[in-house]
Nucleic acid binder design. Structure first.
Lengths: 331, 331
DNA sequence: TTGTAAGCGTTATCAT
DNA sequence: ATGATAACGCTTACAA
């Protein structure tokens, strides 16, 4: 019930031992009698003594805080893809007694917030960082970490990053979607653009085996709302459209919702495939056909690689998350 | 490009000034000539000098890390309700240059992880905490923060917490749902139980004006999958059911999905209302009727109260988030 | 305006 | 096995 903070000195005095002894009781390396240790640990629990983390990491730098920087595409709707990646990261981190700090990075982040992020890295506030590629900003943070030798893992492709990263083949996923549409006789494709999707577009086109110009492109957008509006646009200006690839699950849901509102039948009139395959995809009605990116695994992989980097391993081979096409009801 | 850390001493030497001067250049209170300050700031940018955060917070405790502890109901599907609360928190925190650390707390958290959480609070690692009520564990953490006078805000009702918290009237929301069903002539209600929902059940029953025993109760569950299975159960054992209140949006989606798979018509055969009204709700097909809890606002409120607590305000009146019923297509 | 030096609460290195 | 004490890197009186 003490309401003030107990320092090691006060605590040691209370027990009638030296501060060094108290420190040793917790360090698990120092030589100390089992009896004293037990006594100290017990008393600590009783009096709620706990070493000040700043003092501790000042004299022996360790810390267990991991920072995640991810692109915030939209500040109003949560990003389910990112949410699942975070779960994957946390599930691994928790096993190692590490904690996750989350840092949304707006696409056009004001200089001030970027600076704050850099400071976190430079100041030793975090023991390791995971950067989800999203913009130049992510790249700056990456350099920052590199220069300061802070353990760092990158999610997604980033220029100049060859090791310690986890990547997924956007292009191949989109290729599968395109080929599927082609094989099922669709003729008038549209693509709902997302963020950073040159590769998706390219792959889609290759799968379709169609000149790029014949693919209606809308966006870029991000969430439900964008998907909804995109459908309205298509109904008005591209009514011949018979198949759509959406850059995210949310966009697909928004799109389908708008379609059903207009009595457009899915998949009969328009076949829809989404990207990401987050948990919600299979429970949508109709269940979403989706390019499966396994966000949970991406997160877990990233955290596992980071763990290895923090243990001193160098130049860890990039982990490639395969992605395939899951056909459900929407296509 | 320096790969080792620059200390204030080294940095000061490089510039030919004292460490105190360097410190003052950043402190914004100390008296220092504008010229020296500019010079130092510029050089710092150039050489990537940044004060070590541990040393800094040792001599002048401040820190800007806020911890969120939330109940992790399911470690496989993300919790959209929590995700939106987090966005709300972060949107406010970011404005104050604070960072969020997220800590899922499994319902039956092993002693070890609870201990870790306590240590975060006791060790001064975090400057403030937001606790989302979920179990006895949340309460322990709350006490921990209280005893150490760490600024703390609670989300949800918690025994013994009168101030510095944000609450929502679960019972009233469920009441509205029950009354709606009653008024629309539904006779055979079911309730898909979630976590901590005695109040929801009670309110539902009151709205229905029906003996508790006449309400079919299933669960507790949490996500899509549970909702899906619940529907299967109802189809087999309670086929007279004509209206359902689900404890979360995800459960409702799972439920409806299963219903549609069985050609059960929503809302004609079974009317469905969910709880939470997360972003996805309105884009589901059929759009979910839902008890709106405004998670984003809950998060924002919590962060704003925390900010005030950290500024020294005491006993801040609990913020009550009103919840109403949004009727869409599923009921 | 600037420099000197005494903390801040630990851990680690010596002694004992 | 335990106790002094010197770092750790910074902020902040106090001196100049």
């Amino acid at each position: 019930m003490a309401s003030k903070k107990l320092t090691i000195k006060e605590f040691a005095e209370l027990l009638g031992v030296s501060t060094a002894t108290v420190s040793r009781a917790f360090s698990s390396k120092g030589r100390i009698s089992e009896k004293t240790r037990r006594h100290i640990i017990a008393k600590a629990g009783e009096l709620n003594y706990c070493a000040n983390i700043h003092a501790r990491s000042l004299s022996s730098p360790d810390s267990s805080l991991i920072a995640l920087y991810y692109p915030e595409l939209n500040s109003e709707e949560p990003d389910y893809f990112v949410a699942e990646i975070m779960m994957g990261i946390n599930s691994t981190l928790a096993k190692h007694g590490k904690n996750l700090q989350v840092n949304p990075l707006p696409l056009a982040a004001p200089e001030a917030i970027l600076k704050l992020c850099k400071e976190q890295i430079l100041s030793g506030a975090v023991a390791g960082v995971i950067i989800m590629y999203g913009s130049k900003n992510s790249q700056e943070l990456y350099k920052c970490a590199r220069d300061r030798a802070v353990p760092c893992v990158v999610i997604g492709r980033m220029e100049g990053v060859k090791y310690n990263n986890v990547i997924y083949d956007m292009r191949h996923g989109a290729f599968l979607a395109g080929r599927y549409f082609k094989n099922t006789g669709r003729k008038h494709p549209a693509y709902l653009r997302g963020h950073l999707d040159r590769n998706k577009q390219k792959g889609f086109q290759m799968g379709l085996e169609m000149p790029a110009a014949q693919i209606v492109k809308i966006g870029p957008g991000f969430g439900f709302r964008d998907g909804y509006h995109a459908m309205e646009l298509i109904a008005e200006k591209h009514s011949e459209t018979d198949c759509v690839l959406c850059a995210t699950d949310s966009m697909a849901m928004g799109f389908i919702k708008a379609a059903l509102d207009r009595k457009v039948r899915i998949p009969r009139d328009i076949a829809v495939i989404s990207y990401d395959d987050t948990c919600a995809a299979r429970y949508y009605a109709p269940a979403l056909s989706s390019v499966r990116l396994k966000p949970f695994e991406i997160g877990r992989s990233a955290a596992m690689i980071l763990e290895r980097v923090m243990n001193g391993e160098k130049n860890i081979q990039a982990e490639i998350i395969e992605c395939d096409l899951v056909v459900r009801e929407s296509s």
